[in-house]
Design a protein around this nucleic acid. Structure first.
Lengths: 206, 206
DNA sequence: AGAGTCAATGACACCATGTCATTGACAATG
DNA sequence: CATTGTCAATGACATGGTGTCATTGACTCT
């Protein structure tokens, strides 16, 4: 590679700063007001820009949140990619517990932004689609893990791996939102243990 | 009881008819347009009433849908009240399968209105609360069933009955919305079998 | 017949959105 | 340096939905 001039477009830089100010303000306003109550006017006021400026940088309110979601999204992707190659039931239990734990701990850590995201999923088609890709990524991955366990004789074969994966993820996801909301004061560890125990062993004896 | 005059308030009757026209129109418009896109103007136009009339009978758009939800809600309550007194694991499996089946079949039958409800849950605080009461009713009931099975030595005792109930209902609920949306072409019977099998027996062998 | 009640009405004030013509600072060119 | 081009920024505006309220007029009661 030859020397890239590394141009310093003074105007482009100012533009980037404006964009950042809008994102920072968006984050504050979304967290304070919630997704629906937040308005473009509030955001541009906090960012100290003109009204139209928001529309120069973003398509609309949804678009601002989608950009803000990006970090969290990537953390989810990382968790989805946990490797899974157990040789025993106990080993499987351990891996699964670790993954569930990571998933739900994130609910705690990113509670503020996820609260907004949850609301936005219900309101904005765009945000819903974005979340849907996360969900399908998890389910597809879990599906493969179940199939792996079935092939190795660890798991029963009279169930469909994609249906199992979906149901399992759904329970996890709903607990995620529960923790984000923090209505009930759930202890993450209890949830993790119960979910994992039920998933691997079922409720009934024998 | 003495003879009630059974007054026929001619004006009250007219009023009731207006209310019914609004509800019928509301149902049509909600189903055709979805909850967010539907407007009061569309509804009153279809009902052939004045704009303000809608606000005489209902607090707002949410309120109209909540009244429309009522039938479906009652059917949900009925399903939640299924009796549960199994003596064996096989018997328990049968009862649970029947309840899940009734729950998910309703998704098919009431698909149109439930599609609107799902959207409205995301948008309207009021509707969300209404659905929340359904959910808690199910969870509370399932909780008792789990405790019953634990007391009778049918179910393992190292799990918390309310956490189990919640996770179990969450998986069911998400499949309900899946079926309502009808994205994937799911066979209800397959879903029922997989859910019930996993719940009662777990994924792993032994 | 007259007074009272109440369902119905639509004009109105309010508010948020997204667009667009205009501005002015900076960049590129000769 | 002067001239022309580009592009981020701006806010006034058109649009469209909401909920309110003063007014109307049909019905009820005495």
């Amino acid at each position: 590679m030859t020397k890239e001039p590394d141009r310093l477009p003074a105007r482009k830089l100012k533009s980037l700063q404006t964009r950042m100010k809008l994102l920072a303000a968006g984050s504050d306003i979304f967290i304070k007001e919630g997704f629906q109550k937040a308005t473009i006017s509030q955001i541009i006021k906090k960012a100290e820009t003109g009204y139209g400026t928001a529309y120069v940088h973003f398509k609309n309110k949804d678009d601002i949140l989608i950009v803000l979601m990006d970090d969290v999204m990537n953390r989810f992707y990382d968790i989805a990619e946990f490797s899974f190659e157990p040789n025993t039931k106990v080993e499987a239990y351990g891996i699964i517990e670790k993954q569930v734990s990571a998933f739900l701990e994130m609910a705690n850590e990113e509670r503020k932004i996820l609260k907004v995201v949850e609301e936005a999923i219900g309101v904005s088609e765009e945000v819903r689609k974005k979340w849907q890709t996360i969900r399908e990524r998890f389910i597809e991955r879990i599906s493969r893990d179940v199939a792996f366990a079935q092939k190795n004789g660890l798991a029963r074969r009279d169930v469909d791996c994609t249906l199992v994966a979906r149901g399992w993820f759904y329970a996890n996801e709903m607990y995620l939102w529960d923790i984000v909301r923090n209505d009930r004061d759930l202890l993450v560890n209890d949830v993790v243990h119960n979910l994992t125990a039920m998933y691997t062993g079922g409720l009934y004896i024998q």
